[in-house]
């Protein structure tokens, strides 16, 4: 091949890459769009969690969840309703938008009949045996601005939906250790600005898990995912979450988000 041909190919590739780069929104723009997506102020949902280990053994748990957004914080309660050996176990979280402030979390243990204050610092721990960490549960399909640097990679079709692939790298090693991730790839649906798929790498850079957001529907004017699945590639454990009876219209009373309320199963 002649030298001039190399130069032509190089220039063509260079121009093409600039064109693609220009056509993709920046990581910051995607982050903004995703995090500004309407999630409703109040949400009550039923949740069925199925945990499946590599031998196929299943644990099924029914959960009632309540979430309310305030100006500077989000309050969440999850109450286990089945099976009877975990019934009434409840988790409550106050998540603050001010990242300098630690979130507050409580766990009600029916065997003790006491609500325990728990540390929110171990956000990379797995939530009650699932393949989602406390941080994953907290974020839902939102993205963390303070934890990662984001970069758009390319466009890809995921289950027939055009998505933008974002690469998220923890801002510091300390954050990476806290989260348990060294790198995250997120496929964001550019039509509705919701993450449809996420792939995680552990601290050592090995494949860790992939999560899939499924069955997305508009309910009461809010884009809502009806199913969530996580597959842990290291231990072949799987968690499937199916959501039902999503209700954004019922106003949740502030009194629900209290220790006293946890004791009575948020009833």
């Amino acid at each position: 091949m002649k030298k001039s041909q190399y130069i032509t190919i190089f220039i063509t590739l260079f121009i093409t890459s600039i064109a693609i780069g220009q056509s993709l929104p920046s990581g910051e723009d995607i982050l903004k769009n995703v995090n500004e997506r309407n999630e409703g102020e109040h949400l009550i949902q039923d949740l069925k969690m199925t945990l499946i280990n590599k031998k196929g053994k299943k644990q099924i748990r029914d959960v009632k969840s309540y979430r309310k957004d305030y100006d500077n914080q989000r309050k969440t309660i999850l109450v286990f309703t089945k099976p009877s050996n975990v019934k009434n176990t409840a988790f409550m979280s106050y998540d603050y938008t001010d990242k300098t402030k630690d979130d507050d979390q409580w766990l009600y243990l029916p065997a003790l009949r006491k609500t325990r204050r728990i540390s929110a610092a171990n956000r990379g721990d797995y939530f009650l045996g699932t393949d989602f960490t406390y941080e994953d549960i907290k974020l839902g399909t939102k993205m963390s601005e303070s934890d990662y640097h984001y970069k758009t990679i390319k466009e890809e079709i995921i289950n027939g939906h055009p998505c933008i692939l974002l690469e998220a790298i923890p801002r510091t090693d300390k954050i990476a250790r806290e989260l348990g991730y060294s790198k995250v790839h997120q496929w964001v649906d550019k039509g509705i600005w919701m993450v449809r798929q996420t792939k995680y790498w552990d601290i050592a850079g090995n494949d860790l898990k992939t999560t899939y957001v499924k069955d997305i529907k508009k309910i009461q004017e809010v884009w809502t995912f009806q199913a969530l699945e996580a597959i842990n590639h290291k231990n072949n454990h799987k968690t499937a979450m199916v959501f039902g009876n999503s209700d954004y219209n019922t106003v949740i009373d502030d009194v629900l988000f209290s220790e006293e309320s946890l004791v009575r199963g948020a009833n």
Binding site: D102, D104, R116, R117, S119
Partner: peptide, 10 residues
């Protein structure tokens, strides 16, 4: 009770 990082004091 209160939580401070990885510690909870009660």
């Amino acid at each position: 009770s209160n939580a401070f990082g990885n510690y909870t004091l009660r």
